Simulated assay, not measured.
Amino acid sequence: MFTSGHSARLRSGIVIAGGGLAGSFAGPAAPLLFVHGTADPVVPLSVGRAAYERATGSAAFLGVLGQGHGEYLTPGRPGFDPVLATTTDFLRWTLYDDRDAARRLPVDAVLPGVTTLDDRLHR
């Protein structure tokens, strides 16, 4: 969706266990949150990190340690709580200009031994 010529109405985006094709993350800048398991056998971590590095605007990369391709999206699984909190904070901040959510995001994102955050978001 975030390719050259994309609609300026796309105000933010979340990429879960994804990489991106040639031409991705072009056009009007929008904050992006990348969420990726560090042991993903379907979309290798290196592919997700490369997509994050190609993002030219405000972006963050939430790594879910030792998790594969999305099992952290299931309640009760390692990483579920910080992923839910971080994605909710991100959307509340970018879509509703919720400044409290912007401040909570880096705290909610990091659970030692479970998640890490590389943060280039411009709050």
Rank of each mutant, 00 (worst) to 15 (best):
L91N: 06
H122L: 14
A8E: 12
P31T: 10
R9Q: 14
V15W: 00
L62D: 00
V15G: 03
G13N: 05
G18Y: 00
T74E: 11
Y72V: 08
D119Q: 08
T115L: 01
P44H: 11
A8G: 12
D98V: 11
W93E: 04
R54L: 06
A29C: 12
D119H: 03
R120E: 09
A60I: 10
H69D: 06
V15P: 05
G37D: 00
P75V: 12
V15T: 11
T56C: 07
A29P: 09
V107K: 14
L73Y: 07
L105P: 00
H69Y: 03
D100T: 15
V47S: 06
I16E: 05
T94L: 06
R120Q: 13
A30P: 10
D89A: 11
A22L: 10
F25D: 03
S46L: 11
E71G: 12
V15C: 10
T94Q: 15
V110Q: 03
R99S: 14
A55N: 08
V107P: 05
M1N: 13
R103M: 11
F34K: 06
V83C: 07
P75Y: 07
F25N: 04
V15F: 07
T74P: 00
R49L: 13
T86A: 05
A26S: 14
F90Y: 06
T38R: 07
Y96L: 15
L121V: 11
L33M: 08
Q67A: 13
L121F: 00
E71L: 13
T56I: 08
A85Y: 01
L21P: 01
G19N: 04
R103L: 13
V64P: 05
G5I: 09
T86S: 12
L84R: 15
F25R: 05
V47R: 12
V110P: 00
V43I: 15
Q67Y: 03
L32G: 04
A109D: 02
E53H: 07
R104Q: 14
R49K: 14
A30K: 11
L121P: 04
L84C: 09
L73H: 02
V107E: 12
V64D: 02
D97P: 09
G113Y: 02
P31E: 04
T38C: 07
L65C: 04
T86V: 11
P75G: 10
L73M: 13
A85L: 11
A26R: 15
G23E: 01
L21W: 12
L45F: 13
I14Y: 01
V64Y: 03
G5H: 05
G76S: 08
A101H: 01
D118F: 08
G18E: 00
E53K: 10
L91E: 08
G37E: 02
R120K: 13
P106K: 04
F80D: 00
G70L: 06
L117Q: 01
A109N: 00
H6M: 02
A102I: 12
A29M: 14
E71V: 12
A101M: 04
M1G: 14
G70H: 11
P28N: 05
A85M: 06
L45E: 13
P112V: 10
G13M: 11
